[in-house]
Amino acid sequence: MIVPIEHVLILAGILFALGLVCVLVWRMNLIMLLIGIEVMLNAAMLAFVGGAARWGMADGQVFSLVIMALTSAEVSLALAMVVYLHRRKRTVDADEFDTLKDS
């Protein structure tokens, strides 16, 4: 293997942190929040693939494929909900949707 596993994991860690920061900070836009989640998932997939290459086992690659399928389903659902929410309040600001709180 040309790329050492440590490098792959460090890259995955950086990607995950970027995604997390995007989720936490960019609350003005729900779509950016979803993109942050996607980035974090990609970081996880990268770690899986790196692990699969390191130990020569296909499990990690299978997991990546499953996550890809899962992500496409999730994103299509989530975007549909974003459209719906935008229709309700004419905004995509995450903080505007706080009806989960009682009273």
Binding site: V23, L24, R27, A94, D95, D98, T99, L100, K101
Partner: peptide, 14 residues
């Protein structure tokens, strides 16, 4: 804490 704002929940989660 339970103000209903997703961002706060996410921050707590993080």
């Amino acid at each position: 804490w339970s103000c209903g704002r997703v961002s706060v929940y996410l921050l707590s989660f993080g």
